[in-house]
Amino acid sequence: MIDDVGAPDIHRVTRRSAGPDESAHANRVWWEHAADEYQAEHGSFLRDTGFVWGPEGVEEADLGLLGPVEELRGARVLELGCGAGQCSRWLRAQGVAQVVGIDVSRRQLQHARRIDEETGLRVPATQADVQRLPFASGAFDLVCSAFGGLPFVPDARAALAEAARVLRPGGRLVFSVSHPMRWCFPDDPGERGLTAEQSYFDRRAYVEENGAGSAVYVEHHHTFGDWIRAIAGAGLVLHDLAEPEWPEHNPETWGGWSPLRGRLFPGTAVFSAAKP
């Protein structure tokens, strides 16, 4: 990855198609710039050593989607879109020795190294795109991702096929993304965010462009059917699907997520699948 990124200069927000290379480049540009602010704003919520599945604040310790911790301790684990490594570090704290992370942003990984030093829990990580994993086939027992990378890919089936490729037979893929129904509603935590304004079936990407018309942020919408077909198309078997409810103890607003909306409809979907 090159290091020629400056602050994104957003001139226009639109819905249009965006391919894998444009999406990867745009989001690398975005996260190189946004990583400092993101970690400053959300770091305490995510915690240096915490596995939070989404903005609701529901944790892996609550859902247990990765399986019993004692069974994970001998597993080889890959985290996609690890950011500053909070989820990977939680796994290390549970005694999982072999955990590796990837993220498209070098700056996010620099935050990971900083927290590694502060906590003494070190997680090897590399800069890479979830669409092109730099690992051998069958290298991992578990691939996991909490809003990391997969919401930003145009081809869900290709991305999940790549995740399945690096899983051994019997391995599992567990990942969270924005709940597909949220794309019907404005990204607004208040009353306006309770009224559907867009078609659920509009799969055009959400794109922020600079003055030259180049994408500097891209997020992709896939329906529930798209994700389930992608899981099946990757040769995986869907075992579980969680739609976390908003916890009473979480008063925080995170972008379009809020207690107001969270009491009425889900904001996060967590898929759990296995490779036969």
Rank of each mutant, 00 (worst) to 15 (best):
Q39N: 14
S176R: 02
A146E: 06
H179K: 12
S44K: 13
A112G: 13
Q198M: 14
G81F: 00
Y200N: 08
I10D: 08
R229E: 15
G148L: 04
R106N: 13
R182Y: 12
P55D: 02
A215S: 03
A274V: 15
W90H: 10
K275I: 06
A274R: 15
G101V: 01
D116P: 00
F201A: 14
P154G: 01
L236G: 07
W30N: 01
G233C: 08
G255W: 00
W254G: 07
E208N: 06
S258H: 08
I2P: 15
D36Y: 03
W90Y: 12
I10E: 05
L109K: 03
R182G: 06
M181V: 14
P247H: 00
A159R: 04
W31C: 05
I2T: 15
P247C: 02
R16S: 07
G57R: 05
L63P: 09
V69Y: 05
L241I: 13
P134I: 02
V52I: 14
D3V: 12
P186G: 04
P20A: 09
G190M: 05
G19A: 03
P251H: 09
L260Y: 00
L150G: 07
F185G: 08
V166Y: 02
I10H: 09
P247Q: 04
I115P: 06
A125Y: 10
H220L: 00
R165N: 01
G83W: 01
Y206P: 09
I102D: 02
D187I: 03
L260I: 08
G74N: 07
P20T: 02
A97I: 06
D9L: 10
P276Y: 10
R229G: 12
A93Y: 06
F140D: 06
F147A: 06
L142W: 05
H239W: 14
T14F: 07
Q127H: 07
C87N: 13
Q39M: 12
L238A: 08
G120N: 03
G148C: 01
A35K: 08
S137D: 11
E248C: 12
I2C: 13
F147S: 09
F152E: 09
C184W: 10
Q86S: 12
L167E: 05
Q94G: 01
H239V: 14
E252N: 14
S214D: 15
E22T: 03
S23V: 03
F152A: 06
A242Y: 00
I115F: 08
E70N: 12
F185Y: 14
Q198D: 12
N250P: 04
L241M: 11
S44D: 15
R203N: 15
Q39I: 14
L133P: 02
G74K: 03
H111R: 13
L142R: 12
H25W: 15
D202K: 07
E56K: 08
T223F: 06
E71K: 11
E219F: 10
L264E: 15
G95I: 06
L78Q: 02
